[in-house]
């Protein structure tokens, strides 16, 4: 009996499986690498890093905007929730959160905050909700990236915006 048709069919099925696995695994792999890079710069997870403005020498994250100052933390809330605090400047500013599969599951910008400050708790479930009013965001994955964007509207505005973003914190509860 000829076996080559079975071999060809088997190879095609295996190729299809590997194709699907690649497509599904790639975002996790790319996020893992980005998280490792940010955590290495910050000196660990659940800590913020305040990189310099991006230039052509910036090779960490693809397609960065040179008009923004980025501040980032890798979150790992498997054991404990995380408290995120930051002053909010008088310019475009946003706080966004990304799950381990790259999904942008939360974003808030300066116009949606009050009194020039923000405080948020990031947790895997709502048991972190305590008596106070601090909003709790439920993350779809226990690891991911928190990213602050601050717009540099002009060279004159840069020092103040830079000083403010360096007060952004990620701290385990």
């Amino acid at each position: 009996m000829k076996t080559w048709p079975i071999w060809i069919a088997g190879t095609i099925v295996l190729a299809a499986v590997l194709h699907i696995l690649t497509i599904f695994a790639l975002p996790y792999g790319i996020m893992d690498r980005a998280m490792a890079g940010i955590a290495a710069q910050a000196g660990g997870v659940n800590k913020a890093v305040y990189p310099d403005p991006v230039t052509a020498a910036s090779r960490g994250i693809v397609r960065p905007s040179p008009d923004l100052l980025y501040t980032a933390c890798v979150y790992d809330i498997g054991a404990r929730p995380l408290r995120i605090t930051s002053p909010v400047p008088d310019t475009y500013w946003s706080l966004s959160m990304f799950a381990s599969n790259t999904d942008n599951f939360f974003v808030v910008n300066d116009r949606q905050t009050k009194a020039g400050r923000i405080e948020i708790i990031l947790a895997t479930d709502d048991t972190a909700k305590s008596g106070n009013d601090t909003p709790v965001v439920i993350a779809p994955s226990s690891r991911g990236i928190i990213l602050f964007r601050s717009l540099i509207a002009s060279d004159a505005a840069r020092p103040e915006v830079d000083a403010l973003r360096r007060q952004s914190r990620c701290e385990p509860l």
């Binding site: 975002p27 397609r63 999904d103 942008n104």
Partner: peptide, 26 residues
């Protein structure tokens, strides 16, 4: 982009060429 509704191909493509992009309301 950035959405949980993204199909696996879109998610993978954004991961390669636009990681940490915001969703379109923002």
């Amino acid at each position: 982009t950035g959405s949980a509704d993204a199909d696996p191909y879109t998610r993978a493509r954004i991961a390669i060429g636009g990681l940490l992009a915001l969703s379109r309301s923002e």
